[in-house]
Amino acid sequence: MRLAHPPDSDAILSVRQLGVRFGGQQILENINLDLYRQQVVTLIGPNGSGKSTLVKTLIGAVTPTSGQVTIAPQQRIGYVPQRLHLDPTLPMTVKRFINLPRRHPRRDVHKALEDAGAEALTHAAMSELSGGQFQRVLLARALLVKPDILILDEATQGLDHRGTAAFYQHIESVRHAYGCAVLMVSHDLHVVMRTADHVLCLNRVICCQGEPEHVASSPHYQALFGDQTAQTLALYRHHHQEAANVG
């Protein structure tokens, strides 16, 4: 198959003309994206826009109907899923969970838990964790592979404001410590504005993309998310600039 643009050789993850179709329904169409070293790319889009499907395609859980995903050789992917339902009949401690499917040296495990802010939970049962603790353990598990790319699928869903802020703080420090690129699906527009280098707005196709400010002012974006969120963003920018002026 001839591709219009070949995968970018500088990118650590390249998607070209990706399409996914489920039972006659086109979920994703003509997706092109490049992820570069240490870049933070955020994926936003309304419910059912194909965000999760795109993430699942990147980790290999969904086979694309057309197009291709290219990952640079020897790049490790750490994946933090949206939510994980553990069957209550399955007994599982944090320590055991983190060592699946491969066991890691005790020192590495300790460091990953520490980096994710979950070092106190090593011996806890997974079923006793709060939502925020659970997500931090999932993050620690993703960090154990020493990822070059960290992929997060709405990792803060179900967390309150404080929990969400704390979780993203961890992501931010982890990103610098590990020097990894981050691709995340997020609904938390404040976070998007603050941390993302590049925003992709998805609705079956990529309807707009660019720097956060650029996307927020795009008519596509406003049509999808309505005025209210646009105002949220405007308000955020306003505060942000004021703070910058004061400082």
Partner: peptide, 19 residues
């Protein structure tokens, strides 16, 4: 054993680990 356990936890986690 470990692969079975991982796949039991979640299909996606298993895929992401190359299983």
């Amino acid at each position: 054993w470990s692969s079975l356990l991982t796949a039991t936890l979640s299909d996606e986690l298993a895929h992401a680990s190359g299983l």
